[in-house]
Design a protein around this nucleic acid. Structure first.
Lengths: 141, 141
DNA sequence: GTTGTTGCAAATACTTTGCAACTAT
DNA sequence: ATAGTTGCAAAGTATTTGCAACAAC
């Protein structure tokens, strides 16, 4: 992929003309150090449980910066709350959500990616981004 | 609209143990008679402009029944408001959303459908449903 | 006449925003 | 010192819910 190389968090803030604060670092740490797909409340509570004082407002404000700078990916599973996951130079992937357990499985399929671009082009458009979620249930063995 | 769909709607209500009211009919008519992807507020306002007295509560309550009975498809474009479209026996399709104009284009691709089932199965799951949205912009001519 | 339905307003859930106090530079 | 940042609470959005008046059967 062609993302700009992994920049550190402080550089992002500098680039955005924002100051470095322990609250902002805490938000990034919290998302970064977890491979789960967390929601804002979850991130907020974890930071507080780690003893760092932060407000929900700051969590949301910091997430916006991280999403804008492609450090974090925002995903809408359709239940009203957005989830966030770090994009530490990972390749792009989509999600499969088990309707029985709620488990989120990541997947990537080259053919699928190519096909989407082809479909957009056939319609006179260029693919900018996409949302693709497969709601699945376990196969009976 | 035609009589057979009205009949269907009444049957759905009967099946659900619900009464037939002009508000419920108005909601179904409003969604049914438009091929656009409307949001609840839009549907609510249109009904009122047509001179039928209805409340937002009733619009939402009726939409729930329609969605549950697969008369209407609910879609989340990611802007916080759900959109609704009629499912008058149409074949399944996905959506392409132009990021410049907001236009929503429907598409269907067999290969894409098959590929998704294959991916789910390769992971030990069965595909139940999916959400697939391509965010696109016009190709430069 | 019952019993379900409606409209209203209040409640909810998530997120955003205004502002005075605070803090990084 | 001072301009950006924070936390709080209030506001904003979309949707849901309790309940008394009302309509369908």
């Amino acid at each position: 992929m062609n993302d700009s190389t992994i920049q550190n968090f402080k550089e992002i803030l500098r680039k955005e003309g924002l100051r470095y604060t322990k609250q902002r670092q805490a938000v990034w740490d919290e998302i970064q150090n977890s491979q789960e797909h967390r929601d804002a409340e979850d991130i907020y509570m974890s930071i507080r449980n780690n003893g760092v004082n932060v407000s929900r407002a700051t969590v949301y404000r910091t997430i916006d910066v991280l999403v804008k700078n492609r450090m974090v990916r925002k995903m809408d599973v359709g239940d009203g709350r957005n989830r966030y996951e770090p994009r530490l130079g990972d390749a792009h992937h989509d999600h499969m959500i088990c309707v029985e357990t709620g488990k989120i499985i990541e997947f990537y399929n080259e053919e699928l990616e190519d096909l989407q671009e082809k479909i957009a082009e056939e319609n006179g458009y260029m693919l900018v981004r996409h949302i693709h979620q497969l709601f699945v249930k376990p196969l009976k063995k």
